[in-house]
Design a protein around this nucleic acid. Sequence first.
DNA 1: GACAAGATTGACT
DNA 2: GTCAATCTTGTCC
Length: 207
Amino acid sequence: MLALRPLHAAPALLGAVLEVTSGPDRRSGRIVEVEAYEAADDPASHAYRGRTPRNGVMFGPAGHLYVYRSYGIHWCANIVCGPIGEAGAVLIRALEPLDGVEEMWPDRPKARTSTDLASGPGKLCAALGIGGEHDGVDLLAGDGPVRLLTGTPVEPAGVVDGPRIGITRAVERPWRFAIAGNPHVSRPRPPGFGPGDRSAPATGPHR
DNA sequence: GACAAGATTGACT
DNA sequence: GTCAATCTTGTCC
């Protein structure tokens, strides 16, 4: 799955489960929203301008975790995918908490509901306890601190796409994917995202 | 060495 | 709906 380019791997990752273990702690969540970032042809990607100390993980093998600090405050997690050297990645934007929910609340004191625990890139990292120390870990190793599990695949008809969020370049590309109608997707919700609105945007679920 | 921008979040009006 | 917080990274001189 992760051998695919980000644009194809992103929707395939919906429904997969991200699991973080820290000592006796085990927290996991189902991926409900992602964004695809190519490198060579994507001005919005961190790797667009080439390899740097920060984004080096993106140029490595698929299946590794790329963690970076956003706005000096939050951590954001990406899954590296595609061929080595192409620096493609899929940003995880939102999770549906599964295991270890009780342990997540202390790390998310501002959250009021379970749908608020991991409904954003920075939120999900806080909820799962992901930080800079997890940058570069192998998600497929099996015994690492962060693992990617198959979970329940989502049918193409259940996937909606839309423009990416919070970026200033290449904003027109509909490379944001989410599970239709899922209440855990992050804000802002374009038409077709979130509960109560299952009408997919004009672009359709695939591209 | 200095400066500007940023894949966000939450508080406040 | 608007805006401030906060600091790392990358670029420019």
